[in-house]
């Protein structure tokens, strides 16, 4: 990708740090507050829903227009699997980066493809989960739990999706041979964003799915 900097000759920066890398870190810092606010919203309303369904308890809820008893919404095995896949994708992308830096194209393309697939899987898992929860009676506006849960995880999912698009773009570059070692930074920056999306999930998973 073209370098959007004022300095055509790239003189050394005042800190010696790459300008674009500094920018992505700055952006990541900012995003921390974005997710902190969404998480606050989820936690403040935890246990405040007026009707079911609820995360971990059976409850009274409206199902097909009449009061019914709803099962707990969360099913840990599936989301645990999705969590593991996302974690491993972080592992894969560092391997891809390692390959890019060494000029090992096979390592780069192989692991980067794996990363993209993991990302796609995670998004698919989430879509399935939403669909499934919906059929268990948790609509977007059913109660505060539903609204705050879908909003938080939905925004995370959007970030994952953007990350997949970004990594896929880099993958295309790599396949076309446009990611030589001196341009590995293009992948490093995308990878930093990807890891960030992953650590956000590292927080969301226990806080939303497991905590009491």
């Amino acid at each position: 990708m073209a370098h959007d900097t004022a300095h055509a000759m790239h003189p050394p920066t005042a800190t010696g740090l790459d300008t674009r890398k500094l920018a992505i870190w700055t952006f990541i810092g900012s995003e921390c507050l974005f997710f902190a606010t969404l998480i606050s919203n989820y936690l403040v309303y935890k246990g405040q829903s007026l009707v079911g369904p609820l995360p971990h308890e059976t409850s009274q809820c409206m199902l097909h227009g009449q009061m019914a008893t709803c099962e707990p919404i969360f099913e840990i095995p599936l989301v645990t699997f999705g969590t593991a896949v996302l974690l491993f994708s972080s592992f894969f992308v560092v391997l891809a980066l390692n390959g890019a830096q060494k000029g090992n194209r096979k390592q780069l393309i192989g692991w980067l493809s794996a990363t993209v697939l993991c990302g796609l899987f995670f998004v698919g898992m989430q879509v399935y989960e939403f669909y499934h929860f919906f059929h268990k009676g948790l609509g977007y506006t059913t109660n505060l739990f539903g609204s705050s849960f879908y909003t938080l995880t939905g925004f995370h999912g959007t970030h994952v999706t953007l990350g997949v698009i970004w990594l896929a773009t880099v993958l295309v570059l790599a396949i076309r041979g446009k990611l030589p070692p001196e341009k590995a930074l293009n992948l490093e920056i995308a990878a930093l964003y990807w890891h960030f999306v992953d650590v956000v999930w590292i927080v969301i998973f226990p806080v939303v799915y497991l905590m009491r």
């Binding site: 403040v44 309303y45 405040q48 007026l50 506006t141 505060l144 609204s147």
Partner: peptide, 16 residues
């Protein structure tokens, strides 16, 4: 979209 984050009738809290 019909959520109630700040709407008391749905359990939401305007103070948030």
């Amino acid at each position: 979209f019909g959520t109630h984050f700040f709407v008391p009738s749905g359990g939401g809290d305007p103070v948030l």
